[in-house]
Amino acid sequence: MLISIQQLTKVYQSHTAVKGVTFEVQKGSCTALLGPNGAGKTTILNMLAGLLEPSSGVIKFSEENGTNVTGSIGFLPQQPKLFDWMTAEEFLKMCGRLSGLPQKGLLQKIREVLGFVGLENVRKKRIAGFSGGMKQRLGLAQAILHEPALLILDEPVSALDPTGRREFLELIQQMTEKMTVIFSTHILHDAEQICDEVLILQAGELKWDGNLQQLKKSNDQQTIRVKTKEKLPAIFSESESFTVEYVNQQEVIIQSKQQINENDILQRFMEQGITVQYFNADPVTLEEAYLEVLAK
């Protein structure tokens, strides 16, 4: 275990941004902090990064071999504003020295990191001329330069275009092999691509803590949706093992906690001589499971 967070709370004058959140981050894991905008994701990450004092609660970093993890954090804020008047190399040099890296070998290291994020050929250029995607890459470079034990990324891909998004997620994925990563996003798909653990947050409260497979299973209700050409007659009795909900005269949703036999249902429509235009018995998608968790 790398970090343990207990009853973390942040109260501002007008509202409570984070309400008694408790979770743990395992060493070497990749955790996504998922939730709609304003759920308190940034506040939690800022507290983890040591930028914000919690109103109450504890953030405990494990102390291995006497080295405290607090000094070994890499942080990429949401929409980073870099020092525009510096060149990429000057900026990383400053960041590296402030993180306590020795002068010796620093330039070599900076080249490696810039190569990794794909900015090697602009290292002598001023940041002011960089595009949003390049700034984000440089932001990642400063966060991983000192090889921190914990990498914290706040909405790292939300400002990027689809291509930039995919490339950036690939970079993060490569980092998960070397360090513990925690990042926030309001898009489930991002989390699904690179993370094993998810924390779902809404209105400052932790709604779910576990891995993605468990999240899928948590919503074990089976759903079948049927649309027909004709008006639906009463083909289901009151005493069925599943619930029946008529969306309109030509559409019905069948749900059950137990296993339903899809063929059985389809058969019933056929027997009545009804033309089935649409029949969907797909297992629950992650998206649905996520919305379900938020709705609880």
Partner: peptide, 13 residues
């Protein structure tokens, strides 16, 4: 105000 100070504050300075 523009937030660039974060890159300093997040380090042991």
């Amino acid at each position: 105000n523009n937030g660039s100070i974060i890159f300093i504050s997040v380090r042991p300075v």
